[in-house]
């Protein structure tokens, strides 16, 4: 199977549904170890993404991802805006001019997104961030040869839960040091919903 404009759009719509539904939860996690605006930021940002992509007809996956990226960049805010914005921007470059994405190209696009976020945030894994979900998911995709939605969702969920016992060394949460332990990272949680949404879209194919 291939990932087309239709799937890309459904993915974005599905992400938005999760962000609206889990706004409170993300905010609560961010209040524990951050500045408490992650849920509000993601819900506001993805609402705008959906508004944007619903207005237009897209010919290529690169084009729809680019519009999503630019909207995330200007509407999400906080640290999540530039980080997720970079991720979607890198994906849009990897998918540029493509009508349909095969598994290999898809995996490469997600790896580009991961590397872009590492570079942007000057961060690596094990620091209790978004990357602690993205890297295991990319590794999982690299090991496989075709889409496995359920295993993809499980990998993301497991990775997200593992951030609970990590000590934050990056971002606002780093000020909480040892106290950051025992709380799931809000960025890891929103990343989990992004991959859950992806699995849900791939499942329907």
């Amino acid at each position: 199977m291939h990932f087309t404009v239709k799937q890309a759009k459904e993915w974005l719509l599905q992400i938005n549904d999760h962000m609206q539904e889990h706004k409170q939860e993300l905010t609560r996690l961010d209040q524990a170890i951050g500045d408490g605006d992650h849920g509000i930021n993601m819900a506001r940002g993805f609402k705008e993404v959906v508004k944007k992509v619903n207005e237009k007809e897209y010919k290529t996956v690169g084009d729809i991802m680019q519009d999503a990226a630019m909207t995330i960049i200007s509407k999400v805010g906080g640290a999540a805006g530039p980080l997720y914005g970079t991720a979607f921007l890198r994906m849009s470059l990897a998918f540029k001019d493509k009508v349909s994405i095969d598994y290999k190209t898809f995996t490469r696009g997600l790896d580009d997104a991961l590397q872009g976020m590492k570079q942007r945030g000057k961060a690596t894994t094990g620091e209790k961030t978004i990357l602690d979900v993205w890297e295991p998911v990319v590794l999982f995709l690299e090991e496989g040869e075709s889409f496995q939605p359920q295993a993809l969702a499980d990998t993301a969920k497991h990775a997200m839960e593992k951030t609970k016992n990590m000590i934050a060394t990056k971002g606002r949460a780093a000020y909480f040091k040892e106290k950051s332990k025992g709380h799931i990272d809000p960025g890891a949680m929103s990343s989990y919903y992004i991959f859950l949404a992806m699995a849900e879209v791939l499942e329907e194919v």
Binding site: G78, A79, G81, P82, L83, T86, R120, G121
Partner: peptide
């Protein structure tokens, strides 16, 4: 975060 936005 100003730095990340500026770089972007």
């Amino acid at each position: 975060s100003a730095k990340m936005n500026a770089e972007l």
